[in-house]
Amino acid sequence: MSLGVLRIEALSKRYGRDALALDDVSLSLDGGEVIALIGPSGAGKSTLIRCINRLVEPSSGRIWLGDTELTALDGRGLRQVRRRIGMIFQEFALVERLTVMENLLSGRLGYVGFWRAALRRFPQADIERAFDLLEQVELGAMVDRRADALSGGQRQRVGIARALMQTPDLLLVDEPTASLDPRTSRQIMRLITRLCGERNLPAIINIHDVPLARRYCRRVIGLRQGRIVYDGPADDLDDRVLTNIYGEEDWDTQAATETETETDEGGV
């Protein structure tokens, strides 16, 4: 589709009487494109991706996923289009007291009825898909473990598998590495970008860590006070651009810490 998989037009969001959290944001995403969304805390990154699956209600603007206008939907229609959008969260957002398998199967809830879900009677195809994905995120041995028995990196891999259970057309990723150590962060980012690449799955990744964004995404969008102030290749992110996004700072120290964590083999 020439128009792109995801199109956002003039999206704005205001919480109550506060300042605009999102101010006239427009962007479009092509098939298979994995973009990083960077910006300071409170810039509206989280609000932007939550507007896409309508966890947050946009104040104005329009969003299309393929031919479907997301902003025109409600109730059942909205739930049906949410099934096509996978989401990965900062603090994993797993259901702690359920097993890994149950957490994965929760990604199929949009496709089964209430009683099948209550009795955990999911179609065999879903279960096979879950086993397959568990192998891909290297958690095959953990099927029957409860989510709260896993480490941070393992939980995030369950979160990734749950999102992919939906066979989504788009992946929304909210700060996937903010609760993880540097080494696990890299592994998770590599896994997400690899899995997206294999599926030609477009993704928007909110991320604090500029070096990680640079390394794993080719296109970067910079958000500042709800406005897009940069949209371009990751390679063009220089000191001037970063200052424009985050404000004045000595970006050389950033580069220094970057090389430092690069050689860091600690963690886990």
Partner: peptide, 17 residues
């Protein structure tokens, strides 16, 4: 939030989350 994002119904959300 995560369960709602999968497209689950309100009843399913209560059941799973």
């Amino acid at each position: 939030e995560a369960i709602i994002a999968t497209g689950a119904s309100p009843a399913q959300m209560r059941l799973y989350a």
